[in-house]
Design a protein around this nucleic acid. Structure first.
Length: 164
DNA sequence: GCCAACGTTGGC
DNA sequence: GCCAACGTTGGC
């Protein structure tokens, strides 16, 4: 039985890693590193599949918004920054024989027809139960339903982009 | 810059 | 295993 395509939302602070920076990478591909939350880690390691779509969300900016769509192009593998003492994401307690943190590779597919702000997401009835708009949500990686993904594409006037 | 929410740590 | 203290996230 073929696995259904999955959908995710990944948060990034634009000062650290923006949609434009993602697009500027060779072929728009780069590692989604630095995730240091166990729930998010479990999803990256165990659930993210090649071909899944990722909504690229800008947090800690005004207004917070979804900027574009990526595709998972490599499934979970250990995040090398956890073993690099020079990295801001270094984790001295992670054992290389049993890595604690994982990443996936993502490829930018398309910018949204127009960005969709958090206020607009909150105002859309079809998105009322989306994790992102629940109070206290702090996860930087979270699953999105197919219906939520479709609603966001519709809100932003965006066609579901093909793989590159 | 403030602060609510919430995950993690560590003493007991 | 409880839970207070602490650190971080992220909207505002």
């Amino acid at each position: 039985v073929a696995e259904k395509r999955g959908y995710w939302l990944f948060k990034s602070e634009p000062d650290v890693h923006s949609w434009d920076m993602q697009c500027a990478l060779p072929r728009g591909i780069g590692p989604w590193d630095g995730v240091r939350n166990y729930q998010a880690r479990n999803w990256l390691r165990d659930e993210c599949r090649v071909g899944d779509r990722v909504l690229f969300y800008h947090s800690n900016c005004a207004p917070p918004h979804i900027a574009g769509i990526c595709e998972v192009v490599e499934s979970g593998r250990p995040d090398p920054t956890q073993f690099d003492p020079a990295s801001a994401y270094y984790d001295a307690r992670s054992d290389p024989m049993r890595p604690r943190w994982y990443l996936v590779e993502v490829q930018a597919l398309a910018a949204l027809g127009r960005i969709v702000s958090l206020d607009e997401l909150r105002a859309e009835p079809a998105l009322a139960s989306m994790r992102l708009v629940q109070r206290g949500n702090r996860l930087s990686v979270m699953p999105v339903t197919e219906a939520e993904y479709a609603a966001i594409l519709a809100l932003s006037g965006t066609e579901d982009p093909p793989s590159r």
